[in-house]
């Protein structure tokens, strides 16, 4: 698929228009609350400003085409892993962190290379087997360094870091090889955010039973079910994002976003609780770390990718 501009892609244009309008409305509301009604909106304003920077960056990167999108996802992997490493203490071990960075670069290269047998965009075979090589490298580092103290912990954390923030998240980058990438990525990000908001709203309104009391005390069963209902309806509402999808794909998409998104959230929650940190970092003022922002996509991305690959062969 050649690189195309936004004007040639009505799906993406529609999303850009919607999100732009939403941001504008939110901006006006914040302005009215803050300046005219003198309410304290500084915290919300910080979050809003974060979105103001993130959304154009996101749209811009995707618009620049396949290469930029793949590199963008790789860059997100790198900063997410960096946050993970800083939160666990792995960051002091430069051997392992550098190897993981190398692995993430390898994933980006495999995503960009053409498949040697079919000539199609993206060498999926290499992408799929990348963990083999990276894990092997990570495992032999203690041998090379002739060091044993705490090495099992370092290696294990690096493998989790690579597999989770590099490889699984990297599937979102591999999706850029699909001709329908614009619609997919716009839908996934939009749906995941809506899903978050729905879980929060339903939880606030009807929440009584804690979903996982130890992992994330604020999440409720009611919120999760409400979010799932919204997520199931959303593929039909936004069917224009993937006009080639049949009923099966639409149902699966709803399930993947509705369940996977919340699982991604909870997964990061348990990691943060075990580490004893509140956010994975303060990279984006008002939002916490990058990892706190992309947590849902880490599970949704690969599941959606494999669903799409199963039905439409990417």
């Amino acid at each position: 698929m050649p690189e195309f501009a936004i004007s040639a892609d009505p799906i993406f244009g529609t999303y850009a228009l919607w999100v732009g309008t939403l941001l504008a409305i939110a901006g006006v509301i914040l302005f009215v609350l803050g300046t005219l009604l003198k309410r304290d909106v500084s915290q919300v304003w910080l979050t809003y400003r974060g979105w103001l920077i993130m959304i154009p960056t996101l749209f811009g990167t995707v618009m620049l085409g396949r290469t930029a999108s793949v590199l963008g996802v790789a860059a997100l992997s790198v900063v997410s892993f960096k946050e993970f490493a800083r939160a666990t203490g792995l960051y002091k071990d430069w051997w392992h962190t550098c190897t993981v960075y190398l692995g993430i670069a390898g994933l980006a290269i495999a995503t960009l290379l053409p498949d040697p047998t079919t000539g199609a965009n993206g060498w999926h075979g290499l992408f799929r087997t990348m963990p083999v090589y990276v894990i092997a490298l990570l495992m032999i580092i203690p041998v090379i360094r002739n060091k044993t103290d705490g090495q099992l912990q370092q290696v294990s954390l690096s493998i989790v870091g690579f597999a989770y923030m590099g490889w699984m998240f990297g599937h979102l980058g591999f999706l850029a090889n699909s001709p329908h990438f614009h619609g997919y990525v716009a839908y996934l990000i939009f749906a995941v955010e809506i899903n978050d908001i729905a879980a929060f709203t339903f939880g606030k309104a009807f929440g009584k039973h804690q979903l996982r009391s130890n992992v994330s005390p604020s999440k409720t069963v009611e919120g999760a079910l409400g979010a799932l209902a919204v997520a199931m309806a959303l593929p039909w509402v936004l069917h224009f994002s993937f006009p080639h999808f049949g009923t099966t794909e639409l149902i699966l998409t709803g399930l993947i976003v509705g369940i996977g998104g919340q699982l991604g959230d909870l997964t990061l929650s348990f990691i943060k609780r075990d580490l004893g940190v509140k956010d994975m970092g303060q990279s984006i003022p008002g939002h916490g770390g990058f990892l706190d922002r992309v947590d849902s996509l880490i599970i949704v991305g690969p599941l959606f990718f494999h669903m799409d690959r199963w039905f439409h062969g990417i």
Binding site: A87, G89, Y91, K92, L275, Q282
Partner: peptide, 16 residues
């Protein structure tokens, strides 16, 4: 359980 040692400035923004 493992002993983690998060970076001391984990709650700080980059300029801080």
């Amino acid at each position: 359980p493992w002993r983690y040692s998060p970076a001391a400035d984990i709650d700080s923004t980059l300029p801080e």
